[in-house]
């Protein structure tokens, strides 16, 4: 039998708990009774073949889908937030879940810097009392604005985008746009950062830089990261914990090394070994001895 739930890190409490999550679209079962836990200060990778339901999990986490069955609990400052019952914008605001998408969704008409300021909307909106204090330039708003600018600068430096802060977001090269998305998500001050294939389309150098960025977010910022990724070099190198999905079910859960050697995982990715020899004529064509 496969290893399910044999991952229990020491000293890292649970951050996100998914219990018996099921998502049906009509007759199609996209996620089937999925339970897993993402821990604080951990990089948790959600992997699986195409169509395994990984993005659907993200959509349930961020309020796009209401799960058919199940409970998703996010812990923040000793309080439990049930994500499946919350409105989308409150999930970011209260529960501290930030996310990026497979395809880049920056505000392309705004500058790099403005993208990071929009992410701090709540903080600024509260300080500005619906823009009234903002227009009058009251001190309360000034100091909130200053903080927001500092945070934006911090992430601009961290992602190497400082020099391009005033460029339109759409003018950045692809790899930089990916980094900006992560910076923007971090500007919402999340507890959990959900990244949907952040390494897709990156070259090896950029992919290496992304690894460093994610490791630093985990270690220096103490933020939990939940990652969907196909690039196994990224997954195996940086994740602490891997959850494998196939056809909406969890087939393996554990540390990267254990998961890699799990036979269920190998089967899901490479197909079953069907113990059937090639027909002789084809075997001859490809130069195999029957």
């Amino acid at each position: 039998m496969s290893q399910l739930d044999n991952y229990a890190p020491v000293g890292k409490p649970a951050l996100l708990t998914v219990e018996h999550l099921t998502m049906r679209f009509g007759g199609l079962v996209a996620i089937d009774d999925l339970s897993f836990t993402a821990h604080e200060r951990d990089i948790t990778a959600l992997i699986g073949p195409n169509g395994a339901g990984k993005t659907t999990v993200f959509n349930c986490l961020t309020g796009f889908y209401k799960p058919t069955v199940g409970r998703i609990t996010m812990k923040r400052e000793g309080q439990d937030y049930l994500l499946e019952q919350m409105e989308g914008f409150r999930i970011t605001r209260l529960a501290g879940v930030a996310r990026t998408f497979q395809n880049i969704r920056l505000f392309s008409g705004m500058t790099v810097f403005e993208n990071l300021i929009v992410a701090q909307h709540n903080h600024l909106m509260n300080a500005s009392m619906f823009s009234i204090a903002g227009l009058l330039g009251l001190p309360r708003y000034r100091s909130a604005e200053k903080e927001a600018i500092e945070l934006a600068k911090f992430w601009l430096h961290k992602t190497g985008l400082y020099e391009r802060a005033d460029n339109p977001a759409s003018s950045l090269p692809y790899g930089a746009q990916r980094r900006l998305e992560i910076a923007r998500a971090m500007c919402t001050k999340p507890r959990l950062l959900c990244l949907d294939e952040p390494a897709a389309g990156l070259n090896p150098k950029e992919s290496g830089e992304l690894n460093d960025l994610l490791l630093s977010i985990r270690t220096d910022q103490g933020i939990g990261v939940l990652l969907i990724e196909h690039d196994m070099s990224v997954v195996m190198k940086i994740s602490d914990h891997v959850v494998v999905l196939d056809y909406g079910r969890k087939i393996s859960d554990g540390a990267p090394y254990d998961v890699r050697n799990d036979e269920n995982v190998i089967k899901a990715y490479l197909g079953e070994d069907e113990d059937e020899d090639l027909p002789p004529e084809i075997a001859a064509d490809v130069g195999m001895q029957p």
Binding site: F64, F89, T92, R105, F107, V118, H121, R184
Partner: peptide, 16 residues
């Protein structure tokens, strides 16, 4: 302006 460009993303950043 954020809602104008991408309402879904704006909501994910906490914009009501």
């Amino acid at each position: 302006r954020a809602c104008e460009q991408d309402r879904t993303m704006a909501a994910l950043l906490g914009v009501n």
